[in-house]
Design a protein around this nucleic acid. Structure first.
Length: 419
RNA sequence: GUGAAUGUAGCUCAGUUGGUGGCAGCACUUGGUUGUGGUCCAGGCGGUCGUGGGUUCGAGUCCCAUCAUUCACCCCA
């Protein structure tokens, strides 16, 4: 067969999918603790929505979107834009002044795949709309940190403030002046960035640039009074909640819409993809998209990246989602087992039975491999006497089971096995 | 979009100076005296050597192209 999945698209097979389920279950639990409601969003939106929300000149919009050009629609490259569209479209701000929403699902970006980065990838996204309180910022980071901690992952949190439309232009001007002076000392990428996206120069990985940038004007020193107040409020909140973080004045975000607080959950264990989650405040965005004039903040966690970390930071997952294996010996007994298996499943049990007519030894091997706790052996001899053998695989103890009508037998087995 | 590396069984890989693909490991499967697992032993299934050209008497091995994968850059969760 030479039809394969597309480059950058991946199947999630049994064995790995259990990890995803655990991740999702825990995330839902934690989102619920923080009173977030789920919202499910379409994957396809008007291209224009993303262009306006994310920024016309970002890499995502310029060259990474899966767009049906003739239809003017695009497969979402991130969730915030769609979520805000839904928020505005349904007037959710009227129903509740502060909305706390989360969504989980696939995103699409046409980038070159590498470790921890696929063209279809999955994010868990949480957004709070309608509150400007710095406590919300702190709470969002605390929630992300809680999820990561309960997954057993050790990940660090970095935070910065990008200012707002009042203070950012001034900072930008002085940064540009600074970069102009050092233009020759910068790497080629940064020479280009100086004009396209000067803030990006601040988090260049090139050691030469890092050195230059050490002296650069700091965002934090240019914050207006309101932004500075907000930042200290966030810091106070984080301290109160006992959230470990560090302030990184070089941290910048790739999407245009961020204001004030931005943050990243960072790991050193994923190669070049350091961020397992990132987000920030976007106070002007909702209005800019035609919605009410309300602030917002959100973050996304990359599920592939979390799964990679889970895989390398721990190993084994608990096996077997099976309660009982029914072993048939011969046609008579298999026929009986076929019916009994179905009755047991109807009764809520997870049962396996194969119909290949294999030896008892084979079937026992199978049971061992699956880690099944009990095997019901339907021997011909016992069957004529209306009996079967229930074997406890762990203790190797066996007991006779009286086979009466199916309902009673199911009842008996359910009680014995769940005991 | 740029750069580098890699493509041999379902998976992990051997394959020496080009001379018939490996009793390789894992997995799967059958058996090791009547109908009982996880270990051990023996057997079995399983390969268009990514694809297409070329060089050669002969190519898994050399050359070209192509596709795919991986890692890194750009960017990003």
């Amino acid at each position: 067969m030479n039809i394969k999945a597309l480059n950058g698209f991946k199947d999630i097979l049994p064995g790995e999918v259990e990890l995803w389920q655990r991740l999702e279950a825990l995330a839902r639990d934690i989102f619920a603790r923080f009173n977030f409601s789920e919202i499910r969003l379409p994957i396809l939106e008007k291209t224009d929505l993303f262009a306006r929300a994310i920024g016309e000149s970002t890499d995502i919009v310029e060259k990474e979107m899966y767009t049906f050009v003739d239809k003017q629609v695009t497969m979402r490259p991130e969730a915030t834009a769609s979520l805000l569209r839904a928020y505005i479209e349904h007037g959710l701000h009227v129903q509740k002044p502060v909305q706390r929403l989360f969504t989980i699902g696939p995103m699409f970006r046409h980038e070159r795949p590498q470790k921890g980065r696929l063209r279809q990838f999955h994010q868990m996204d949480a957004e709070v709309l309608g509150s400007a309180s710095p406590r919300v910022d702190a709470e969002m980071m605390a929630m992300g940190a809680m999820l990561l901690a309960e997954l057993g992952l050790s990940v660090s949190l970095e935070m910065n403030s990008l200012g707002c439309p009042v203070c950012r232009p001034g900072f930008r001007t002085s940064l540009l002046a600074f970069l102009d002076d050092r233009h020759q000392a910068l790497c080629d990428d940064c020479k280009r960035r100086s004009s396209t996206n000067p803030l990006r120069v601040l988090d260049c990985k090139n050691p030469k640039c890092r050195e230059q940038v050490l002296e650069a004007p700091s965002l934090l020193e240019h914050l207006c009074a309101d932004c500075a107040d907000h930042l200290s409020g966030v810091q106070e909140g984080l301290e109160q909640l006992g959230v470990q973080y560090s302030l990184n004045k070089f941290m910048v975000r790739g999407l245009d819409y961020y204001t004030r607080t931005t943050f990243e959950f960072i790991t050193g264990d994923l190669g070049a993809q350091a961020a397992v989650g990132a987000g920030g405040r976007y106070d002007g965005l909702i209005e800019q998209l035609g919605g009410p004039r309300v602030p917002g903040i959100g973050f996304a966690l990359g599920m592939e990246r979390l799964v990679l970390l889970l895989q390398q930071q721990e190993a084994e997952l608990a096996a077997s989602g099976v309660d009982l294996l029914v072993a048939g010996l011969g046609e008579q007994s298999s026929r009986y087992g076929f019916g009994l298996t179905h009755a047991l499943r109807t009764g809520g049990m997870r049962v396996v039975m194969d119909f290949e007519g294999r030896s008892l030894k084979s079937q026992m091997k199978q049971a061992g491999k699956l880690g099944v706790p009990y095997v019901l052996i339907l021997g011909e001899n016992e069957l004529v006497k209306g009996k079967a053998v229930l074997r406890n695989m762990a203790t190797q103890e066996q007991q006779d089971i009286l086979l009466q009508d199916e309902a009673t037998t199911v009842q008996t087995l359910v009680t014995l096995i769940s005991a």
